[in-house]
């Protein structure tokens, strides 16, 4: 059961990696990275139960709490640089 789930998660991670590499836009890559983050949380939890070590859930929790911070950082940089979120930022966001 857990094995089937891990295989499915690994396949999804592979597809996400392909999307992150091929792009074409930054947002595809951001979505792919975010998805791989979520899948890693699942993967770590499933592995914990697969190997009978549920304390792995601590690591999954760390991911849940902080993996989205880097996604926000990417979006802030691209918004500041390309002004795609210029309604949100100050007028001089487009540099």
């Amino acid at each position: 059961m857990y094995i089937v789930v891990s295989v499915v998660i690994l396949i999804s991670i592979t597809m996400g990696l392909v999307r992150a590499y091929r792009g074409p836009t930054l947002y595809d890559r951001v979505m792919a990275a975010n998805m791989i983050g979520t899948l890693t949380v699942l993967m770590v939890s499933v592995l914990g139960f697969l190997t009978g070590r549920p304390e792995f859930l601590d690591i999954a929790l760390v991911y849940v709490l902080i993996s989205f911070v880097s996604t926000i950082a990417v979006l802030r940089v691209s918004a500041n640089r390309y002004g795609t979120a210029r309604d949100d930022a100050t007028g001089s966001a487009q540099e």
Binding site: I13, G16, L17, A20, Y21, G23, L26, R29, V30, A32, A33, I36, G37, T40, Y63, S67, S70, V74, V77, S78
Partner: peptide
């Protein structure tokens, strides 16, 4: 390089 930053975060997740 923004894409590279995303890919390195994926690398570390893996």
């Amino acid at each position: 390089l923004l894409a590279v930053a995303m890919l390195t975060s994926i690398y570390s997740l893996l």
